[in-house]
Write a protein that binds this DNA or RNA. Structure first.
Length: 431
DNA sequence: GCGAAAATAT
DNA sequence: AATATTTTCG
C-alpha cells in the first residue's frame, strides 16, 4: 500500500500557487465564519447570563395596560423596569430573573386578561378568521367546534428564550423523556405565566427536533462505524478520532458530526445549513446529551465542531480542491488510512442528489482502479499521458491511497514522475 | 390531558 | 418563503 502527498514548499511548479495561497473565496468564507461566531455563537453560548428574559411579544404598552387589569402590581413594577428586564440584567441570578420574569409578565394578570379576552371575543370578534377553505383536509370540523364560534384573539406569543428553554429542558430531563408531559413539565418549571398549551407546543417542537437530531446522529455513527470497519479491515490499528483525523477521501456526512463541504457551501435544507443551524442547534442540542448524573465519568460523545471556525482550524484547503486534516501536513507524516478499493465501492460516500459531491465527500478518485485504461497502461508501459493523468489525480487528492498490491515496475516510474512534480511518497507507518 | 396537525403570526 | 407559536381536533 502506498500513499502519496504533495511536498510542502517543494518546487512543484503548477502546485505551489495553489498550495501557497488561498483563493479569494476561501478568505471570504473564513471571514464569514468569524462573523457567525460573533453574532450567533455568543448569543447562544452565553446562555447563563443576561439574555434570558422571556417576553411576550406584545406591545409593551399593551402588555402593561392589560396586566394592570385586576392586578395591583406592587408599585415597583413599571414599564421602565420591565423594559430593562427584557434587555437582560447582568449578574441577575436565574431565580431572580425568573421571579422578575413572572412578575413582569404578570402571569396571574395574564390569565385574567386571557379569559376576559376570550369572552369578549365571543361577543365581539376582533379578527375574522379565514374559514379554512379546504385546509381541513382529512379533518371533520365537529359541530361543536362550528357552534363554538371560531373567532378568538390570539394570546401573546411566548418568546422561548434560551433561559426559558433551559428550564424547560431541565424539567423534561428531570421527568424522563417518556414521562415528560406538558402538565408535569409545567409544574416543574414553576413558571405560571406559561400555559399547558404553551408547554405542549414547545414540547412538540422539542421532540420533533430531538428526533431529527438523533436520526442524524445515528446516521453519523453509522458512517463512523463503516469507516472503522474498513479501516480495521485494511489493518489500521490506531484509533481514529473522526474529528481530528478523518479518513482520507471521506468527510463525516452530517453536521452533527462535522460539516461536509456541501453543507458548508450549499444549503441542503435549513437544518443542515451552518448559518441557520449553528444557533438553533445550540439551542436544541445543548441539553440533548447531558453528562449522566449518576455516572459523570461516563464517556462523552465526541464534541461536535461548534461552527465553521472549528472546521477551518482543523482542516485546510488542499491543492486544487479538497479538504484534508492539517495534521496531515504538519509534523510527522502519518500513514493514510488504507482504503481498499473493494471497500470503497461497497460504501460509497453519501451523495446529495442534484448537488455535485465534493471531491472529499466521495471515494478518492482512483489513479488506477477506476481508470481501467490507465491501470492497464501503467501495468504495461505507461505513457506520459497516463502518468500525467495519475499525477493530476494525485494533485487533486493530496492523499491518495493507491490500491493494494500495486507493485508493478511501472509504478516506480510513476512515482518518479510524481516526485518530479513535488509529490512525496509517504512512509508506510507513523508514530 | 395528550399529541398531531392545521392555522396563524412573524 | 420559512419558521415559530397557537389553536383545533381526535
Amino acid at each position: 500500500m502506498l500513499a502519496v502527498e504533495p511536498l510542502r514548499g517543494s518546487s512543484g511548479e503548477d502546485r505551489d500557487g495553489a498550495m501557497g495561497s488561498f483563493s479569494v473565496a476561501d478568505v471570504d468564507f473564513a471571514d464569514e465564519a468569524l462573523l457567525e461566531d460573533i453574532s450567533f455563537g455568543d448569543l447562544f453560548l452565553g446562555i447563563d447570563h443576561g439574555d434570558v428574559l422571556p417576553d411576550l411579544e406584545l406591545d409593551p404598552a399593551e402588555i402593561f395596560a392589560e396586566f394592570s387589569v385586576g392586578e395591583e402590581h406592587s408599585g415597583s413594577t413599571t414599564a421602565g423596569e420591565a423594559a430593562e428586564g427584557m434587555l437582560g440584567v447582568d449578574g441577575a441570578s436565574q431565580d431572580v430573573v425568573a421571579a422578575a420574569l413572572e412578575e413582569h409578565n404578570g402571569c396571574r394578570g395574564e390569565e385574567v386578561v386571557s379569559a376576559m379576552t376570550r369572552e369578549e371575543s365571543m361577543v365581539m370578534p376582533s379578527r375574522a378568521r379565514p374559514s379554512s377553505p379546504d385546509g381541513n383536509k382529512g379533518r371533520t370540523p365537529s359541530a361543536a367546534a362550528a357552534a363554538k364560534g371560531s373567532h378568538r384573539k390570539r394570546k401573546g406569543k411566548v418568546d422561548w428564550t434560551p433561559e426559558l428553554h433551559r428550564r424547560f429542558v431541565q424539567a423534561v430531563e428531570q421527568l424522563g423523556i417518556d414521562k415528560a408531559v406538558p402538565s408535569r413539565i409545567l409544574e416543574l418549571m414553576g413558571i405560571d405565566c406559561l400555559t399547558r398549551h404553551n408547554i405542549a407546543s414547545h414540547l412538540q417542537k422539542y421532540r420533533s427536533h430531538r428526533k431529527h437530531l438523533l436520526a442524524r446522529e445515528a446516521e453519523a455513527a453509522s458512517w463512523s462505524q463503516r469507516r472503522q470497519v474498513y479501516a480495521a479491515g485494511a489493518g489500521a490499528k490506531r484509533d481514529i478520532n473522526p474529528w481530528v483525523a478523518p479518513t482520507i477521501g471521506f468527510v463525516p456526512p452530517t453536521p452533527a458530526a462535522a460539516p461536509s463541504a456541501v453543507q458548508l457551501f450549499g444549503p441542503l435544507h435549513v437544518w443542515g445549513h451552518p448559518t441557520a443551524e449553528a444557533p438553533l442547534v445550540h439551542m436544541w442540542l445543548r441539553h440533548l446529551a447531558p453528562r449522566s448524573p449518576t455516572v459523570p465519568w461516563a464517556p462523552q460523545p465526541p464534541p461536535s465542531p461548534p461552527d465553521p471556525a472549528y472546521w477551518h482550524h482543523h482542516y485546510q484547503r488542499g491543492s486544487r480542491e479538497g479538504w484534508f486534516p492539517r495534521a496531515m501536513t504538519q509534523g510527522t507524516p502519518c500513514f493514510a488510512t488504507p482504503l481498499p478499493t473493494a471497500v470503497i465501492n461497497r460504501f460509497p460516500a453519501p451523495h446529495v442528489p442534484g448537488i455535485a459531491p465534493h471531491p472529499m465527500n466521495r471515494p478518492p478518485p482512483p489513479v488506477v482502479t477506476k481508470r481501467s485504461s490507465s491501470q492497464l497502461h501503467l501495468d504495461a508501459h505507461p505513457s506520459m499521458e497516463s502518468v500525467d493523468a495519475a499525477i493530476g489525480d494525485v494533485l487533486a487528492q493530496p492523499w491518495l491511497p493507491l490500491p493494494l498490491g500495486l507493485k508493478s515496475p511501472s509504478m516506480d516510474s510513476v512515482l518518479v514522475e510524481l516526485q518530479k512534480k513535488g509529490v512525496q511518497k509517504v512512509p508506510p507507518a507513523c508514530g
